[in-house]
Amino acid sequence: RTAFSSEQLARLKREFNENRYLTERRRQQLSSELGLNEAQIKIWFQNKRA
């Protein structure tokens, strides 16, 4: 289980509010910017949509 920092969570929530689905390219960008792997971001979005 991933423990996200408050900064990472704030960024993910802001991104989710703008778009509930990420393109592969956007997921790669977020992964690089947040220091998370793409799978972690993908799962976070899946869980948030559920």
Score class of each variant (00 low, 15 high):
8 Q>F: 03
41 I>T: 02
1 R>W: 10
44 W>E: 00
22 L>E: 04
12 L>F: 01
38 E>H: 05
17 N>T: 09
39 A>C: 14
4 F>W: 06
26 R>A: 07
7 E>K: 07
46 Q>M: 10
5 S>H: 04
42 K>G: 10
27 R>F: 11
15 E>V: 05
14 R>V: 11
23 T>H: 04
10 A>V: 08
47 N>R: 13
3 A>P: 13
50 A>K: 14
46 Q>G: 06
28 Q>P: 01
43 I>D: 13
17 N>E: 14
11 R>D: 02
13 K>E: 15
33 E>A: 05
7 E>P: 04
37 N>L: 12
17 N>A: 14
17 N>Y: 09
46 Q>H: 11
20 R>E: 09
7 E>A: 08
4 F>G: 01
27 R>W: 09
40 Q>C: 13
12 L>A: 00
32 S>A: 14
24 E>M: 10
33 E>P: 00
22 L>F: 03
40 Q>L: 14
18 E>H: 09
24 E>F: 08
5 S>F: 03
6 S>T: 11
16 F>S: 02
35 G>K: 06
18 E>K: 14
33 E>C: 04
29 Q>C: 07
38 E>M: 06
30 L>S: 00
28 Q>H: 09
15 E>K: 01
35 G>S: 06
43 I>C: 12
50 A>L: 10
10 A>S: 08
48 K>V: 07
34 L>D: 00
28 Q>F: 07
26 R>P: 00
7 E>G: 05
5 S>Y: 02
36 L>K: 01
42 K>V: 15
35 G>T: 03
20 R>I: 09
46 Q>L: 09
46 Q>F: 10
1 R>S: 13
5 S>A: 03
8 Q>C: 06
30 L>F: 01
49 R>T: 08
29 Q>A: 11
11 R>W: 05
46 Q>E: 13
20 R>L: 03
6 S>L: 10
1 R>V: 13
25 R>E: 15
28 Q>G: 06
39 A>W: 15
49 R>C: 09
9 L>S: 04
18 E>W: 06
22 L>V: 05
18 E>R: 10
32 S>H: 12
48 K>D: 03
21 Y>N: 07
22 L>T: 04
46 Q>S: 09
36 L>G: 00
14 R>C: 12
11 R>E: 05
36 L>A: 04
18 E>P: 01
37 N>R: 08
45 F>D: 01
18 E>G: 05
23 T>E: 04
43 I>K: 11
6 S>M: 09
12 L>R: 00
25 R>N: 11
42 K>F: 12
17 N>L: 09
43 I>Y: 11
8 Q>A: 06
11 R>M: 06
44 W>D: 01
3 A>S: 12
47 N>V: 11
37 N>K: 09
35 G>F: 04
22 L>M: 05
43 I>H: 11
50 A>I: 10
38 E>N: 04
28 Q>V: 09
9 L>R: 06
26 R>F: 04
15 E>Y: 05
37 N>C: 07
50 A>W: 09
20 R>A: 12
31 S>Y: 04
47 N>Y: 13
